[in-house]
């Protein structure tokens, strides 16, 4: 009975929405709303990358590049070209999607470490442009982002951003769940396990990979836009290698091939550094240790490992 319930495609999004609502109702202060919002925004790019890395098995060490495109779209376009912020979000996702479409097909012919390095190089190239084109991006110091106005109201409180980001995240999870529960979703999971069998079953592997790459890029870009608008300031660090690694770590940590796993990963990666803020000096170190420990002792990630244990315990 419970199992059937969990297989329903609305179960996961509904559960996530419920948790977001409950947390939103009990959070005590702006400080906590700020952190929770950062979790939701990070969860968005983790959800996209999970489709690519967790389900389709294609690694990307450059997804922060797309986050950067999204973030700078809402920073640069309104400031320099008087484009309204909402339209700028759309422009950012469009650019990210088109870039992903163009580079995706050739790059995703590569496998494993070649793919890892090619995507890593892509991310670093984006960060380089953001750092060097000072006239446009403000260089390493970054630039201020003008606040978004919806229906004439300027949105700046952490509470508002919490609910906006939460809504976007839940919608993204619904879309991802729908996709997974379709022939495209089955195809992308199939090619993870055996490309040759997938192709022999009539799956156009290059097409499916490029579709999921574009979707993950769009999610990353959206999360970048949300972050920039929420934070009010962006620097090229948002597109940095370290940020790419953080998104990968969220997925690996929480669970490759589990949407809620990616979100648990986002919670850990955002909350942990805040909770251990006196450990700020050790951030890299802790991140690295965490990645190694999880992969050595819980290779499937936290959520799938615990789910399997729970299922076994019930049997």
């Amino acid at each position: 009975m419970m199992a059937r319930f969990r297989q329903n495609r609305w179960f996961e999004p509904a559960l996530i929405a419920l948790i977001i609502i409950i947390i939103g109702l009990v959070l005590p202060s702006t400080y906590y709303f700020r952190i929770a919002t950062l979790v939701l925004i990070a969860g968005l790019s983790a959800t996209g990358l999970n489709l690519l890395l967790g389900y389709a098995g294609q690694i990307s060490l450059g997804h922060a590049g797309f986050v950067g495109i999204g973030a700078y779209a809402v920073a640069v376009l309104p400031a320099k070209f008087a484009v309204p912020s909402l339209l700028a979000i759309f422009c950012g996702t469009l650019v990210s999607g088109v870039v992903a479409l163009i580079i995706g097909r050739p790059i995703l012919r590569l496998k494993d470490h070649f793919l890892a390095v090619a995507t890593l190089a892509f991310g670093i190239l984006i960060a380089m442009v953001l750092n060097n084109e000072q006239w446009l991006t403000g260089g390493p110091d970054g630039m201020a982002v003008s606040r978004i106005e919806l229906f004439g109201i300027r949105i700046r409180s952490a509470q508002s951003w919490y609910w906006i980001s939460g809504t976007v995240l839940v919608l993204a999870v619904v879309l991802a769940r729908n996709l997974l529960d379709s022939s495209t979703g089955r195809a992308l999971r199939a090619l993870h396990d055996s490309e040759v069998a997938a192709r022999s079953a009539g799956i156009d592997v290059a097409r499916i990979k490029s579709i999921v790459f574009v979707i993950s890029a769009v999610f990353a870009s959206l999360s970048g836009s949300l972050y920039a608008l929420f934070n009010g300031h962006v620097t090229p660090d948002i597109a940095s290698f370290l940020n790419s690694i953080e998104i990968v770590t969220m997925v690996v940590l929480g669970g490759m091939g589990s949407l809620s796993g990616g979100l648990v990963g986002a919670v850990i990666l955002v909350v942990l550094p805040q909770a251990l803020s006196f450990f700020h000096e050790y951030e890299h170190l802790l991140l690295g240790v965490l990645m190694i420990l999880i992969l050595v002792f819980m290779r499937a990630g936290i959520v799938p490992t615990l789910a399997a244990r729970w299922a076994r315990g019930r049997l």
Binding site: I59, L61, E283, H284, L287, G288, M291, L295
Partner: peptide, 14 residues
């Protein structure tokens, strides 16, 4: 790949 990336972070952090 991810393990060695993690190791790189550890070495760098130290």
């Amino acid at each position: 790949i991810i393990i060695t990336v993690g190791a790189a972070l550890v070495i760098r952090g130290v």
